[in-house]
Computed example of a mutant assay.
Amino acid sequence: MADDSAHSDILNVTAQTQLKSIIERIERLELEKSEIAEQIKEVFAEAKGNGFDVKVLRKVVRLRKQDRAKRQEEEAILDLYLSALGEI
């Protein structure tokens, strides 16, 4: 079985440096992502404290991300299906 020094020969120094840089950037971004997720959680808690329905707010945010035409098409199909089921 090969020892650890054999593994370090697989990547040259430049590739090792680049790999380390990439990993450190990913780790930094993951940390930023968790911090942002915590801030979003706090905003939703604030909204809830002000009497807003968080479930509906999440849906509004999701819908606003969609293309308007695509959203309207999905809503039309949803209305069609609900109508066919006698729900509306």
Rank of each mutant, 00 (worst) to 15 (best):
A6V: 11
L63W: 14
I77T: 06
V60S: 02
D53L: 03
E46N: 09
E75S: 05
I10K: 03
S21K: 03
I88W: 08
V56F: 14
Q39P: 00
I22D: 00
N50R: 14
E73V: 09
E74V: 05
S34W: 07
L31W: 07
Q18R: 00
D79Q: 12
L85A: 12
K33E: 10
Q18K: 00
E87Y: 15
E38H: 14
A37V: 08
E27L: 10
D9P: 00
R28D: 06
V61W: 12
R25H: 01
L80I: 05
A76P: 10
Q72C: 09
R25Q: 11
V60H: 08
A2Q: 12
E30V: 03
E74N: 10
F52L: 10
R71F: 14
K33C: 04
A84Q: 14
A45D: 11
F52Q: 10
K55R: 14
L57I: 02
L19R: 03
A76F: 14
I22C: 00
R58G: 04
D9V: 08
R58N: 07
E74L: 12
L63A: 13
R58Y: 14
D9L: 13
R28M: 02
S34R: 10
A37M: 11
S34V: 10
Q72L: 15
T17Q: 14
E42P: 00
A76T: 06
D53K: 05
D79L: 14
K41Y: 07
R62E: 15
D3R: 10
S5I: 08
D79W: 08
G86L: 03
L11K: 02
R28C: 00
L85H: 06
A15M: 06
D53A: 06
I26A: 04
I26P: 00
Q39I: 05
D53C: 03
E24D: 11
V56W: 15
V13M: 08
Q72R: 15
E46L: 15
I22M: 01
G49K: 04
L78F: 12
V60Q: 12
R64Y: 07
T17W: 02
L63C: 09
E87P: 00
K55F: 12
L31R: 14
I36C: 02
R58Q: 14
I22K: 01
D4A: 13
V60R: 10
M1E: 06
L85Y: 11
D79H: 11
D53P: 07
I22V: 01
S8F: 12
T17V: 06
Y81V: 15
K65Q: 15
M1W: 07
E38V: 12
K41S: 07
E35S: 08
E32F: 04
Q72F: 15
V60D: 05
A76N: 13
L80G: 04
R62G: 08
V43A: 10
V60M: 11
E42A: 15
A15S: 08
T17Y: 06
E24A: 04
V56C: 01
S21M: 01
R64L: 12
S8K: 13
A84S: 09
D67W: 01
E38F: 11
S8M: 09
G49A: 09
E24L: 04
R64A: 13
A15L: 03
A47S: 06
K20C: 02
R68V: 12
L57T: 01
K70H: 08
K41P: 00
L80F: 11
G86Q: 02
K41I: 05
I22P: 00
I26H: 03
Q72K: 15
A45S: 13
E75V: 05
Q18N: 02
